[in-house]
Design a protein around this nucleic acid. Structure first.
Length: 247
DNA sequence: AATAGCTTCAACCGCTTGGAC
DNA sequence: TGTCCAAGCGGTTGAAGCTAT
């Protein structure tokens, strides 16, 4: 049920994740957070594209991921939400803590779709909004759903869906993981923290922190866990914590 | 026991969105 | 206003596992 490992033209690994890769990614994110998916694999010592790392984290490694069979209640929720939201898997997943959009999507296509259509046939229903959704562009669907205030249940779902914290700039977003609670929290990024004190945080990595004046050499960029440290990792722990970073 | 067809699900791909410049 | 880029999303694919014959 997995893809055979292979590499793309850039030498980036594709296919199944090995336990070792999982361990590296998990340990790195627990330590430094997801400060930039594209850069992250390089620092974590992974030959993967950032997209692949993000997907692996979101769908498999993230804390509190619920695995295994869906309960009857969960299936009912999915069917009901699919009726009102269509194939908006991430919105549906937001109502099912611990379940990923990929998980729900797979479960829908392998089981619930049939069950849902059987119910529709037995109830003499027309095609659900989800079935019709292929006729419309995503943008259309989103604006329609946003504007739909006639259906109370749908509105309620969207109020909840949209009540997530306002996102920071994607460029400056930093995600840290509370390993005790398994929560993901957005924080102000290191680049914002140091905007006033140094030059370009991202384009001048390591220079200050890894320069060892005693020996006039650059110290290794690998920390004691074997990771390539991002610039901010070597900064005083207390200082980072005061900005909300988890160490 | 062999194998063809089906199911499941991890992972990839391409498109969209939204913020920065 | 337009362009670029990172992140997010949904559709699709590939291959192992399962089941029927």
């Amino acid at each position: 049920m997995v893809r055979t490992p292979k590499s793309d033209k850039n030498g980036l690994k594709k296919g199944t994740w090995t336990p070792e890769e999982d361990r590296k990614l998990k340990a790195y994110i627990n330590r430094y957070g997801c400060w930039n998916w594209r850069q992250l694999p390089k620092f974590a010592g992974l030959s993967r594209c950032g997209k692949s790392c993000r997907l692996r984290w979101m769908n498999y490694l993230r804390p509190n991921i619920k695995r295994g069979n869906f309960s009857k209640e969960e299936e009912e929720i999915i069917i009901n939400l699919h009726e009102s939201l269509g194939n908006r898997w991430s919105a549906i997943a937001a109502q099912l803590p611990g379940r990923t959009d990929n998980d729900i999507k797979n479960h829908w296509h392998s089981y619930l779709k049939k069950r849902s259509s059987q119910i529709s046939i037995s109830q003499g229903k027309k095609l659900s909004s989800g079935d019709c959704s292929k006729c419309k562009s995503n943008r259309q669907k989103k604006s329609e759903v946003k504007n739909s205030s006639t259906n109370p249940s749908t509105q309620q779902i969207f109020e909840s869906y949209q009540s997530s914290p306002p996102s920071l700039s994607t460029k400056f977003r930093c995600l840290a993981i509370d390993t005790t609670e398994g929560n993901c929290t957005s924080f102000v990024s290191p680049s914002e923290m140091f905007a006033e004190t140094s030059g370009n945080f991202w384009t001048e990595p390591f220079l200050a922190d890894n320069y060892d004046a005693t020996y006039d050499v650059m110290t290794p960029l690998v920390d004691n866990t074997g990771f390539l440290s991002p610039h901010f990792s070597t900064i005083n722990e207390e200082f980072l914590c005061s900005y909300g970073f988890y160490i």
